[in-house]
Design a protein around this nucleic acid. Structure first.
Lengths: 385, 385
DNA sequence: AGGGGTAGAAGAACCGTTTCTCCATGAGAC
DNA sequence: GTCTCATGGAGAAACGGTTCTTCTACCCCT
């Protein structure tokens, strides 16, 4: 074993496969201690600038990259944030179905990155061992169901949790949501002003906050203005069911003359259904749906959409989470209030702080009856105006 | 300090904040050594089933979760896989623009999860410190540009890299791609059979493999059949530019009677442009575009699309990567060939193994002139045959 | 009875950092 | 001259697991 042939401390030279340079190698090469290397590279300690730069240079020359695992172990921070999306059915998670998620995740990733964190995508339903095997500094959950056991466990074990969507019953550090009531009310008023007499709703069967709040706001509005509710529900995760529900809605005897669809694909589904029933949009049917997709700018006619501004939500959620991670020493109460006043979970006192964000209604032809294109004229040729 | 009040080894009782239980706590509670706990929980060592279950039970009771950081430090495996997407312009990465990415990422996440790994989303352009701060077992790169410095550095430092998209010049462990040549040729033949006389192409200005191979295949085909190429290029990351390019293509004096658009939004853009120019689809213009979106099933008319089958790609890429991670001990040649024949980078000998996967053409009304609705129209615009 | 094999479990090194503590040294104050 | 204090830097203890090695019985065989 050729003992006593050590090189830089204690590592035996046996089978010296060319591994990445460690902090000890840098220290040896620079002729200083590992303490000095660490301090120099992290801008800590009391070192003259000359030493610092020399160490930096040696580290650079050796291609030194500190071990993330070791740093995480020592400091307790991994720089990793979980992103949990609610799951439906077979596939681990929906992502594409709703452009909202994709946009939101994208903004969240971006926001995290700019503060030095990275996002780990983790379906809520994934194997427990995967969750346990990752050192997470905090987690973003999207629309957690009531009493989500995963969220509860995370929160209990001291990991900050910020949710997109007002949480039902699970404890979270903070939450962000759109003002869904206001959004729905605004849409219904908008449709009324455009001349709608009977406004229908296409909604979902699930119990998530978005669906529930929106539907309740619709029912409230109906009560207030004295309209009989006209709505159809379907499992929102099933794209085929949406088309069927749209059809059902327009096939009713009390057929509505305006419809708001809560989910992204409702716009095209309703448009197709309207065509099948010979209804012209917006002349016979006013249409609005909630969507982040810009295909609705190009449909015939273009469809008015409600945007939940997912980028804004994603950014806000992540920033709140990182504030919580960095401001509070997560859990035991130690260090609380050193930098921050006790804004975040002083000791689970009171409800978690929530933020409501406005939505944006993008008005297009489908919800404006006074549109200039009065008749069924065929598409205009390039020459005409 | 109340010395000699230690509890389970060496941790001083001083300031015993209620931390998560460690392996030592479990060992103490179960009356065994930490070795035994580790072995029992990981199914190693020689232990009677009785001891195993007892330890498991105690661990469960204490809510013990092994520290991911510590395990990673010791074993050298983090269970984390990076997912790098090419970036354009300001925003960290495109994700929604191309449903392809979203679908692919989703499938990749799913495949990784089912093998016990999680995905970390990391734009190639993100701050270097973020990359350095994460212990990655391997990385998936989507469509790396030639000579990507990031990929090179990763590969050099021993991290397995599998790319979606045949890599230009950067070394990778393996790669997966669609058979783009075959796909384009197939589409052009399909359009020819449907009666196209002059097929145009809407393509991009960037130099990624997809754009390059597809365009070259188109030009080759033109040469072979003796058609003058008719194409317009635009920066694919700019959605507005796409509409303009579509317009340009149909405004040309040598206006094509069929168009293939390489990017997702081209379908709607071309449809809109055709309307503007009074061209009917498919009567005056045959249309195909590459897209994963199912909105093209509902447009008027429905548009034929080429699917790159991103789920299949994502799954394959991840499985190849994990095979490489688990089969080969990354880099030094040690352990190579214990389980696997030297399929993956024996010692950087020869080109990395690549896999070509087929695409799928989803034929809809926009590319079939023999549709029953054809009767009413004068077939060709630009004069006679 | 002695020796070898094996089951069951404990000891301790090690993974690569960060960070707390402490030690020289030299300059200025008295 | 000694005391203090600041400066520059080294030593070594964590962090919390995994795993290689060793140790002790105990049983079986000859």
């Amino acid at each position: 074993m050729t003992a006593a042939a050590n090189q830089s401390g204690r590592r035996p030279t046996t089978s010296r496969r060319l591994e990445r340079a460690g902090i000890r190698d840098v220290a040896a090469a620079a002729g200083v201690s590992i303490t000095t290397v660490s301090d120099a590279l992290n801008g800590k300690g009391r070192l003259p600038e000359e030493t610092r730069s020399r160490v930096r240079e040696v580290a650079e020359r050796l291609g030194y990259r500190p071990s993330a695992a070791a740093r995480t172990l020592r400091t307790g921070r991994s720089g990793l944030i979980g992103l949990t999306v609610t799951t439906y059915g077979e596939e681990p998670f929906t992502f594409t179905e709703f452009a909202y998620f994709a946009e939101m995740a994208r903004a969240a990733t971006s926001a995290a990155l700019s503060r030095g964190y990275a996002l780990v995508v983790l379906p809520a339903s994934s194997r427990h061992d995967v969750w346990g095997n990752i050192a997470l500094d905090g987690t973003v959950v999207i629309d957690p169901p009531d009493q989500d056991p995963l969220v509860s466990e995370l929160y209990r074990s001291g990991v900050p949790v910020v949710s997109d969507g007002k949480p039902g019953n699970c404890p979270v550090t903070a939450w962000v949501d759109n003002d869904h009531e206001a959004a729905v009310l605004n849409i219904l008023d908008h449709l009324s002003e455009a001349g709608a007499r009977r406004i229908g709703l296409l909604t979902g069967t699930s119990t998530d906050t978005y669906t529930r709040l929106s539907t309740e706001a619709y029912l409230d509005w109906c009560r207030r203005v004295g309209q009989e509710p006209v709505y159809e529900t379907y499992p929102a995760h099933d794209p085929a069911a949406g088309a069927v529900a749209a059809d059902r809605l327009l096939a009713r005897p009390d057929r509505p003359d305006a419809v708001y669809g809560l989910f992204d694909p409702n716009g095209t589904d309703l448009l197709a259904a309207a065509r099948r029933y010979g209804m012209r949009v917006p002349d016979d049917l006013l249409l609005v749906c909630c969507s982040e997709s810009d295909v609705y700018a190009g449909t015939e006619p273009p469809i008015t959409t409600l945007s939940l501004k997912p980028r804004r939500i994603g950014t806000t959620v992540v920033n709140l989470l990182i504030d919580a991670i960095e401001g509070v020493d997560s859990g035991t109460g130690v260090d609380v209030g050193r930098l921050f006043p006790p804004r975040f979970r002083t000791a689970s006192a009171g409800p978690p702080p929530g933020t409501l964000m406005p939505t944006e209604l993008i008005v297009r032809a489908s919800s404006q009856r006074r549109s200039p294109r009065t008749t069924v004229s065929p598409p205009r040729l390039p020459g005409e105006v």
